[in-house]
Design a protein around this nucleic acid. Structure first.
Lengths: 349, 349
DNA sequence: TTTTAGCACTCTTTTGTTCTGAGTGCTAAG
DNA sequence: CTTAGCACTCAGAACAAAAGAGTGCTAAAA
């Protein structure tokens, strides 16, 4: 159902104008926007057809037109100059980003801060590790004699936690426990370990309790990975936008952002496209119906994926957002693909 | 300069009324608020004196009166029913809190979420560890042969980080490095270690680099402690408040909250009072001049302090806020003072 | 001396009205 | 098919009047 070339041009101009000004655009203001000038009347005709097709709406009869959801969808799919043709700008952004993202460590957090301040928009980011397999456990005594640091190592991640016990713990029993735990890990039978420990060293209750706590921690790490926290950065920037001058509108959206596991879901669903774009109702929540989310996912390691994106009104500058995220993605790849001599990598959460 | 009893009563009534309604309160509406009824004219007289003394202001001549900064200060200092007389309510809140805060682990984050949702207000929290002394380092090889988990143990905290090296690292050299590092730690001379390592094992560049990275990490942990991140929870709740219906007002305050190291400063300054209250301009930032911050600090361990507080318009319900924070403080104390058999404790950041 | 009723006065808020301007849709001519 | 012209619509601004809330002051009552 291809749109004729001129309609596309007009629609594109309307959208970009609206993105810029947040104000309904009228036929007159468009006459200047073309090589061969067209009269406002002609544009009006086209506009009214575009309206019939569902690409434009008017807030009221004597306002200009405003792009509809369908228009934005079309815009990002077909009309927008693709990020591909933008290498120069992207390179510039990437350079700037690379200067600020030194380590994969804490990437999600840092990146959301940096991108939020570069774009002056709200960003949302999250990290999820799944299927992480704990491969090794270390029990490290601390000097006072009754606390233990427990360290788990998964494919490419360390997690640690401190446990304290009221009574001192018998050293040799802990050594045995450690061996047993690691053995159980390689054999994948951690869950059966506790009873047998109870049998073999039942006397020493404190070791048993330590074992219990450690096993719970192992299971938790394997089950939940990284805790899946979602981080919203620069929420206040939404309040700069025309469409969120109304406090209760803004509040709704912010609630959606902070409450939502939707972001995690997107990470799960995210296909292979480099940049994902969810427009308005595609976000699947009435509170976010006037917002869009442009995001990208990236791999931190084989078990850990990250997602980061920009949230803004539907009339956001998709082009710029894509550029930034593309640049980010490149910067990460470069950061990751370069296990330099001592590359610092992720940490505990 | 004690205020006569009746003036105090009237002022208190005005403040509490205003806290409740956010609307200037007039003389008439107060006549009902006393045991022995007083006429509105009398109240008007008192009010106008209170105004002269600087406790009341009027937005304009035919509105009621609004408490001034001085009034709030007086209120929290003298007028407000002290939290002490509230044990029943506090107990109830504490019970609820205890149900939700199981571990010191991640306390700052969890607590801010829980308190924000209980009070329906914005909370700010932060953790700072200072003077932490790294006492032990473990270098744990992971199976692939060229990555190392490095674990630091301070007084009561574990921190870990993964380092990768491109080439495999010689095991025995690492063992030596580990010994050297721990020795240097006990002797407090980590900073002198690197050159001597370079001398003794200069051949093996990868070990040298690992050493370098680990030492940097040690220094970073000792210097910066926990990274001092400030966490703001429930920012959107500000947008429910009358005084932040204006988006740009709200934006300013939110900017202040997320940008600010002021919270950290407060933690540093915080004296021994159980609850701190900063009203309006006391926050020392024009962006926060119409807000107040009620906060409390707590010890996670001897090197780690936390702060958590509630942010709201100056006409916030100080009483309730204090009750919640007092309850929180009690809950934490109970959590901490109870190093049960296996008490789970804090983690890496 | 203190309290209170009464009343004039002030100033915001609300409501209603008119006016203006932007932008459209339609018609008829190019 | 495009464009000029024009009547029409409607939101928002500007203005005016009315309503309402609350005060300050005065003079009488306690």
């Amino acid at each position: 159902m291809g749109l004729q070339e001129r309609k596309r041009q007009i629609l594109k101009a309307i959208i970009e104008n609206y993105i810029d000004t947040a104000e309904p655009v009228g036929s007159k203001s468009l006459t200047v926007a073309f090589d061969r000038p067209i009269s406002s009347a002609t544009i009006r005709n086209e506009m009214s057809e575009l309206e019939e097709m569902g690409y434009l709406e008017k807030p009221h009869v004597s306002a200009g037109r405003v792009p509809s959801y369908a228009a934005y969808r079309l815009y990002v799919n077909e009309l927008m100059d693709s990020a591909a043709g933008l290498t120069a700008e992207i390179d510039a952004i990437r350079m700037e980003l690379e200067g600020k993202l030194h380590e994969l460590d804490d990437l999600a957090y840092t990146a959301s801060r940096v991108i939020s301040s570069m774009t002056n928009q709200t960003t949302v980011s999250a990290v999820k590790s799944s299927g992480a397999k704990v491969q090794k456990v270390e029990l490290i005594p601390t000097d006072n004699g009754h606390s233990y640091a427990v360290v788990l190592i998964t494919a490419s991640e360390v997690k640690s936690k401190m446990f304290r016990s009221y009574e001192p713990i018998d050293q040799s029993a802990v050594a045995m426990l450690s061996t047993a735990l690691n053995l159980a890990l390689t054999e994948n039978r951690v869950e059966y370990l506790l009873p047998s420990i109870a049998r073999s060293m039942g006397a020493d209750a404190s070791v048993f309790r330590l074992a219990d706590a450690v096993i719970k921690f192992i299971e938790e790490v394997e089950r939940e990975g990284d805790g899946n926290k979602v981080h919203v950065e620069g929420a206040e920037k939404l309040l700069n936008m025309r469409e969120y001058q109304d406090a209760s509108k803004a509040r709704e959206l912010m609630e959606y952002l902070s409450d939502s596991e939707k972001v995690m879901d997107m990470l799960d669903e995210a296909g292979d496209e480099p940049i994902g774009i969810k427009i308005g109702s595609e976000l699947g929540d009435p509170r976010a119906k006037d917002a869009s989310f442009v995001f990208t996912t990236y791999d931190i390691d084989s078990h850990t994926k990250g997602i980061i994106g920009i949230v803004a009104p539907t009339r956001m500058d998709y082009h710029r957002a894509c550029a930034h995220l593309t640049a980010f993605k490149q910067a990460v790849r470069q950061l990751g693909s370069h296990p330099t001599d001592i590359g610092e990598n992720d940490e505990h959460r």
